[in-house]
């Protein structure tokens, strides 16, 4: 494998030395481009109290291309589908090489605080979120309790 670019080394070091509150990102022992991520559910959101596992991979042309991020823990959210794929502009067309792993994970945490049912990935969830927000939030809490709190 090619040598790890300085940028990735620096980002990793900083993630370990000054971690973002509520987020842990640890590179895999066998692949320095693959990160095990845990995001805690933000306060005052239906995901509060949950620990959500994600995987993050830095492709070959990172940072020219966006990292690939996916939820592993099941989550009831209008912008995250059954497979854990995330609908987030900075992971797609709004990616800029000046963004970092840190900023990406912060954006994901913000997405948990502020779901956007008008730009849905999981259509059924978004639909319910729009017509009956109370029930949608109840579902999200229930899923958080069931899937994100067991350990």
């Amino acid at each position: 494998m090619a040598a790890l670019p300085r940028r990735i080394i620096k980002e990793t070091q900083r993630l370990m030395q000054e971690p973002v509150p509520g987020i842990s990102a640890v590179p895999s022992e066998t692949n320095a481009r693959y990160f095990h991520v845990i995001v805690t559910g933000p306060e005052d959101s239906p995901f509060e109290g949950g620990l959500f596992k994600l995987e993050l991979f830095l492709p070959e042309d990172y940072p020219m291309s966006a990292p690939k991020v996916r939820f592993i823990t099941k989550i009831y959210h209008p912008n995250i589908d059954r497979l854990g794929r995330i609908c987030l502009d900075i992971l797609k067309d709004k990616w800029s090489p000046a963004l970092q792993i840190r900023t990406v994970l912060l954006s994901i945490q913000a997405l948990l605080s502020a779901p956007n049912p008008d730009d849905p990935l999981a259509n059924d969830v978004a639909e319910l979120w729009k017509v009956n927000e109370i029930e949608a939030i109840r579902n999200a809490k229930e899923w958080t309790r069931r899937y994100a709190m067991d350990n």
Binding site: D61, M64, S96, P97, L99, T103
Partner: peptide, 23 residues
């Protein structure tokens, strides 16, 4: 140079943007 290479390989030409965030 790397930024342009990646963009050109993706077929972008006239609309390649600055690398800064939100620019």
């Amino acid at each position: 140079a790397m930024h342009f290479e990646v963009q050109i390989m993706q077929g972008v030409s006239n609309t390649i943007q600055c690398m800064a965030q939100d620019c």
